[in-house]
Simulated scan of single mutants.
Amino acid sequence: MRGLTLAAVAVAGLAVVACDSAPRPPYTPGVCYAVTPAADGKGQAELSVVARDQPQIEFCAARLEEMRLRFLRMGGSRREITGAYQGQYIFIDRIGVSFSRTLDGNRFIALARTGDGRLAIPAAIQRQIDGTPIAVAAPPPAPAN
């Protein structure tokens, strides 16, 4: 009976591993990649080195944004760029910059676009960094005599 239970657990574990066939981003320290999806949507994505010796993921996002803007200035039409840095995917689109561990998983917004198109830290993150209050209340009115 115990052998049957172990066999069932092993088969279930193999089934979970087999279902996890999503491409993993490379984990090369300090290397920033641009990810180009396969033309048919089913093949392996193509990785191109954009920059080396990048100390943080935000620097890689800046290099990808720089690449995106250069392509647009040369007449390109791609407004969304996907990149990879040390095991995480970077997505740059009209909303801003977001990170994810998978191509189709949940995304964490790291930088948001301002009204003029620049990238900035979202207000909620900035409040946590410098302690800026959400709203400042006006002083109470003077008591009536």
Rank of each mutant, 00 (worst) to 15 (best):
C19S: 10
C19R: 12
C19E: 10
C19T: 13
D20Y: 07
D20P: 08
D20V: 07
S21F: 09
S21Q: 12
S21P: 04
S21A: 13
S21E: 11
A22C: 08
A22M: 11
A22F: 09
A22Y: 08
A22H: 10
P25F: 07
P26R: 06
P26Y: 02
P26L: 04
P26S: 01
Y27A: 07
Y27Q: 02
Y27H: 03
Y27E: 06
G30H: 10
G30W: 05
G30F: 03
V31C: 01
V31R: 03
C32R: 06
C32D: 06
Y33E: 01
Y33C: 00
Y33L: 01
V35W: 06
V35Q: 08
V35C: 03
T36Q: 14
P37I: 13
P37R: 14
P37H: 06
P37K: 05
A38R: 13
A39F: 13
A39S: 11
D40G: 13
G41D: 11
G41F: 11
G41M: 11
G41E: 06
K42T: 15
G43S: 10
G43R: 14
Q44I: 15
Q44D: 15
Q44W: 09
Q44T: 14
A45V: 14
E46A: 14
E46C: 05
E46K: 12
E46M: 13
S48M: 09
S48W: 06
S48H: 04
V49K: 03
V49C: 00
V50H: 01
V50L: 02
A51F: 10
